[in-house]
């Protein structure tokens, strides 16, 4: 007798909606409203007294780890960071509450984007039980109130398909470009430098950096250098010089991150468990330079 396994992925996914992805009005609307969801100010200078930029990096890195480990949808992490930045831009927060805030933001973003969202209990375990689920739920209310319940923020991910569709790339390369671009987007979210950039610019820069990075190995694109940047800039109405600067910054952040990773590996501080995760798209290790 044969054993039959009918196991399917329990998370059902909608197919990409061509009506949305192939309509330029959608892209135009995204470009119009994206500015609304940017943090109001560079909050380290004007709002926060206790929190330093390196603390944001710490909490963002932790959030990325949690999202990766929980195999969250790609958008969850950038969206959570968007909530975090918008909250911090308005509410002075002591550093001891920062991890709670990060957990709340992941909780909200996960509920908005995932079919099976993260649970409060699980998030609390990830804080090493330094917060209680009840506190997470209470603070969820505060964060919602301060964000004026405005959760459906535009993220760089919203632009990726619109950009890829307009590139003269062979289809078989697209998935690799998409995967790398998504990694870059996650990387940008961990760095405060990019917090005030419009999502469309981060998306465009990430796609550009992905194509450039892949081109060093093989010929993935018929376009090179300036022609590519010009085309990308045209797609999202971005200034060419800003886009170039953004792409360079992304590449710098990537290099730093890779160096950091190699150091960590040298120290042997990464567990076996984490190395197993090298297949996740948001992992920096996936990128071949």
């Amino acid at each position: 007798m044969e054993l039959l396994c009918c196991e399917v992925d329990p998370v059902r996914r909608a197919v990409p909606d061509a009506n949305l992805l192939q309509d330029d009005r959608v892209l135009q609307n995204l470009l119009t409203i994206e500015e609304r969801y940017l943090p109001q100010c560079s909050y380290f200078k004007c709002v926060q007294k206790d929190i330093q930029p390196y603390m944001r990096r710490m909490v963002a890195t932790w959030m990325l780890e949690v999202c990766e480990e929980q195999k969250c949808e790609e958008e969850v992490f950038p969206l959570a960071i968007n909530y975090l930045d918008r909250f911090l831009a308005g509410v002075p927060t002591p550093k001891t509450h920062l991890q709670l805030l990060g957990a709340v933001c992941m909780f909200l973003a996960s509920k908005l984007k995932e079919t099976i969202p993260l649970t409060a209990e699980k998030l609390c375990i990830y804080t090493d039980n330094s917060i209680k689920p009840q506190e997470l739920l209470e603070w969820e209310l505060v964060v919602l109130g301060k964000l004026k319940w405005n959760l459906a923020a535009v993220t760089p991910h919203d632009f990726i398909e619109h950009i890829l569709r307009k590139l003269p790339q062979p289809n078989e390369k697209l998935s690799l470009i998409r995967k790398h671009a998504q990694t870059f987007i996650a990387l940008c979210a961990t760095d405060f430098k990019f917090a005030m950039y419009p999502p469309s610019m981060i998306a465009t820069g990430s796609v550009g950096a992905a194509i450039c990075g892949l081109q060093q190995d093989e010929d993935v694109s018929s376009l090179t250098g300036d022609a590519l940047v010009d085309l990308l800039a045209k797609i999202t109405n971005t200034d060419v010089d800003c886009l170039k600067a953004c792409q360079e910054q992304i590449e710098v952040v990537l290099l730093n991150s890779l160096q950091q990773y190699r150091q960590d590996q040298g120290d042997g501080s990464k567990s076996e468990d984490e190395l197993d995760q090298a297949s996740t798209p948001t992992d920096v290790r996936d990128i071949d330079l």
Binding site: M58, S130, I131, E274
Partner: peptide
């Protein structure tokens, strides 16, 4: 290793 308290006890 992701289970960690970042900024000390709350």
């Amino acid at each position: 290793s992701a289970c960690r308290s970042l900024f000390g006890p709350v």
